[in-house]
Amino acid sequence: MTTAHDTSLRTRIVEEFARVAREHGKTLAPLTDDLALLDSGLDSLCLAIIVARLEDRLGVDPFSAADDADFPVTLADFVRLYEDAA
């Protein structure tokens, strides 16, 4: 189920991907739901920066809350983790 709130969360996440790509001179692949994060054009350090920025903006870090979370595979998985944590 997608509520307005969820949509804006996705938007904020996508904005952060774009900003970090810009800052680090990376070319971002089109951000579709089934895009594998490792194919997004960002490396793991950039993904770590995104997690840190989102923690500042949203006040949550789903990766430190989860006991044993594997890093999500696709963009949709990533967004869902934040939706679940919100």
């Binding site: 350090l45 920066i49 997690v51 840190a52 920025r53 500042d56």
Partner: peptide, 9 residues
Amino acid sequence: KYVVRAMMA
């Protein structure tokens, strides 16, 4: 771990 990612950001 937590401090360095904030530093990177």
